[in-house]
Design a protein around this nucleic acid. Structure first.
Lengths: 208, 208
DNA sequence: CGATTGAATGATCTGTTTTTTATTCATTGG
DNA sequence: CCAATGAATAAAAAACAGATCATTCAATCG
């Protein structure tokens, strides 16, 4: 029915407030239930458990991010390289600011990543899909020369890991991270343009 | 004097055995002192504290790694790209195997990195220096086209972070990490060959 | 007098008890 | 019946006491 979804949303909203304000750990199911004018036990008619509420909140946020990243695909008058730039910097800034302004969310993100590794993988996969399309676009436009966009997307994700979870992998400030990402981006796009053929190891070119 | 250095080394050796066998946390200063036939208090004539002994051990290991990486520079008949390949894979495999076979060292590495961030940075800097020389070699040989080898080295480090602390940043097995590193390497070398000029953003090439 | 000791100290860790909390489910109310 | 409750339970977290440990330093030793 629809009452179900409405109630689920009410629970999600209450939990989101609590999580953001007091943190995941300090928020009790009783708190959330009270905010929704219901008993703790009744929450379990709508969610399998506390972590599932958090996961739902994270999923919604991830979807929003993916939607915004997807818009990069439909803009016009932008080269593939520019789209890749948009993608990487949007991701860095978005994550950085979100976690910067609300440190409680770091806790939640970490718990979900630890307890539900699969959830996290799915998020990466969705983003990789968009990356692959950007690269595919670059291949079609003749800008990039890569045989397998999916594979190239995977490599770009690996190479930009440091910028996906800024405050997790470094203690650098945003401006320094941006400077580094700019450099990595330059290197990667130069590589995509030059092309990574099926040839695995190009033996020798010149020697000293 | 020399007795000082000899005693320091005796302490380091005893501590290394204890740390590797029982872990940093479970090893007490009293244990180490007993192994050296001295009182706990006397250790402080040779080291400022427990963590400083660990740091010294880590420093020696880091030096050894840097020495081995430096050998890549003096080999002959290898292109810069091949040297870069050697560097990246040596680092990945070395770190992976060290931490794989002795989980106790992971604890020590993590404590040092947390408590002495600067120490860790210095290690990165030493490795970056070698990377810069490899790139410089590539520039001189005409293989790479980059203006600032130091900067390029920094970017390569950023892009290969995931492979520097394998079991810290991913739960992937070594063969999958190697496969990914191979791909990232291909992309990066393609970029180095094509060159990352001072031109920041090459506006438009073709469109779909 | 420099080198070393070992007892003193305060911080940290460990194991235990108590309390809080997530989750279940038999019961109740509409 | 369906929705909701709230007492019961087991798991996790907090609180606490006791022990251990890193570190210091006044007193000894050579």
């Amino acid at each position: 029915m629809n009452g179900i979804d409405a109630t689920r949303q009410k629970i999600i909203d209450a939990a989101k407030r609590r999580f953001a304000h007091y943190g995941y750990g300090k928020t009790t199911m009783a708190d959330v239930a009270a905010d929704c004018d219901m008993s703790p036990g009744n929450l379990y008619r709508y969610f399998a458990g506390k972590l599932d509420i958090a996961e739902e909140i994270a999923r919604a946020a991830a979807m929003r991010t993916v939607d915004e990243l997807s818009e990069i695909l439909i803009k016009s008058d932008r080269t593939a390289a520019e789209r890749l730039h948009d993608f990487l910097f949007y991701d860095l800034r978005e994550t950085f600011h979100t976690l910067e302004q609300d440190p409680k969310l770091v806790e939640m993100a970490q718990i979900i990543t630890t307890e539900r590794p699969h959830f996290h993988d799915e998020g990466l996969e969705r983003e990789r899909e968009i990356l692959a399309r950007i690269i595919e676009f670059g291949v079609l436009s003749g800008e990039f020369r890569v045989g397998d966009p999916e594979y190239a997307a995977e490599m770009i994700q690996a190479a930009t890991l440091k910028f996906s979870y800024p405050q997790l992998f470094s203690r650098l400030a945003l401006d320094r991270l941006e400077r580094e990402l700019e450099g990595v981006y330059q290197l990667l796009t130069a590589g995509l343009r030059a092309g990574v053929a099926a040839v695995p190891v190009p033996q020798s070119l010149v020697e000293a």
